[in-house]
Simulated scan of single mutants.
Amino acid sequence: MNDLLGDVLRAADPGTVHRDTPLSERALSELAAYEAAEAAGTRTPAGAHLVHAESRRPLLARRPGRTSAARTEGRPSNRPGTPRRRMGLAAGAMAAFAAVAIFVIALINPGPALASTPPLLELTPVSGTAPTLLTEMAQMQRTQPAAGSTIRAQMWSLNTSIAEDGSIESSVTEPQRSETVFAADGSVHLVLTAAPPFPGQASAGLPKPGTVLVDENFPSGQWEFPAESGPPTNVDEVGAYLAALTEDPHLSDGQTFREIASILSNFPITRAQESALLGYLATLKSITVAGQTTDRLDRTGIVFQARDRSPDFEDRLIVSPKHGQILAAETLYVGSSRTDIASPSVIDYVAWER
């Protein structure tokens, strides 16, 4: 399937669907816009988003002898790519990053019945409530040195496909590292490379760490973050900003985690903007403290969690207790219906090198 067409279908937010399922009205309108752009010989800009199966942004795929809906479950999510015109971001997913026709997602062949997933982070108890800790971290942010104009991150995601008989098959993507440089003239340079396998992951079939998967320059105006500007610096304005960004005034707290991760992956936010995001999270009701951990880049962080997006998933945001910086975001499967992965299992993560 044409990558850009797949991107349009993902943006339509159709959920887990089979190949012959009719497209939604919004999907049809976006497809028409894409075709019009192609006919005009223009490049369709795209916002970068980590796509996740249960965020209802499937990556449709076909395999011989079966109808399947392949679903990239990581932010990554949290993944970079090429720009796309912002057309209906009602579902708004985490992160991962922009994707263009040349964006590479290297998938391995379906693995064994139980897919290999990253180890769960170890948690230790920590005192303090989520509102108190997040408020303290928001205040810390205001005292930190100015942030740079380069976003570096490491990410991984699970890919799930559903066969015609309804059975679930999983593949894994190689861990990846991204570097996104925002130049003063408005241009953006993206480099995506293969990262080392996570502990316990077989390396057979994976590209050698350091292999360049994407190396792309985007002229000014081509890397289109899904908003004219970044988030506000006032806590009271964040809710309206996210509602406008996603076209959804009723975001769950878990989806809010994912939207913030998408912002961090696509826009070089300032300390004041990050402080406002943390301050806004402190006002939400479904966020709790899971504990303290050492993240996948060996940094100490406080894990905040939300399970209100779906009973099958737990969304996490990891924040530094020393600097108030958002370090990482992860999604855990905590349901009981899947046979391809254990419960709980990490199904996507992104860790920003900050």
Rank of each mutant, 00 (worst) to 15 (best):
P22W: 13
L133K: 11
P321F: 01
A244Q: 15
D7Y: 10
D340S: 15
D295E: 06
L327K: 02
T72H: 07
G74A: 11
P226M: 08
G239N: 12
A106L: 11
L123Y: 04
P131W: 09
V51L: 13
L192Y: 02
A329C: 03
A61H: 07
I168Q: 14
E259V: 15
M137S: 05
A276F: 06
Q222P: 00
P209F: 02
L123V: 04
R26L: 11
I341E: 01
F218C: 01
S68C: 07
A11H: 06
T233W: 01
T246F: 06
T211S: 15
D248H: 06
A195D: 14
G81Q: 07
T233H: 03
D312N: 13
E330N: 04
Y241A: 04
A95T: 10
D236V: 14
G230T: 08
W223C: 00
T82E: 05
P231V: 03
A27C: 06
L190H: 06
T288W: 03
D20I: 05
A204S: 13
E353G: 00
L245K: 00
G148M: 04
A115N: 04
M155E: 07
P64T: 06
A27L: 01
R354H: 09
V104K: 12
G205T: 07
P209I: 03
A70S: 12
L264W: 00
M87I: 08
D215V: 07
Q305M: 10
A202F: 04
Q325D: 14
R354M: 04
S55G: 10
V235N: 03
E237D: 15
M137W: 15
L264D: 01
R43E: 12
R85F: 10
E228G: 07
R19C: 05
Q305T: 14
I162W: 13
P110D: 07
S170E: 09
L284G: 03
A69F: 09
R354S: 05
E169W: 09
N159S: 12
A37Y: 01
Q292W: 00
V104N: 09
E25R: 14
E274V: 02
T294W: 02
P231Y: 01
F257D: 04
I263K: 05
Q144I: 00
M1D: 11
L213S: 02
I102E: 12
Y241C: 05
P118Q: 02
Q139I: 11
I151H: 01
P311S: 13
P321T: 02
H189D: 12
A95F: 08
G65C: 05
Y280I: 05
A243C: 07
N159D: 08
I162R: 15
S24W: 04
G128V: 10
T246P: 09
L206R: 13
M1F: 11
P197T: 08
P119K: 09
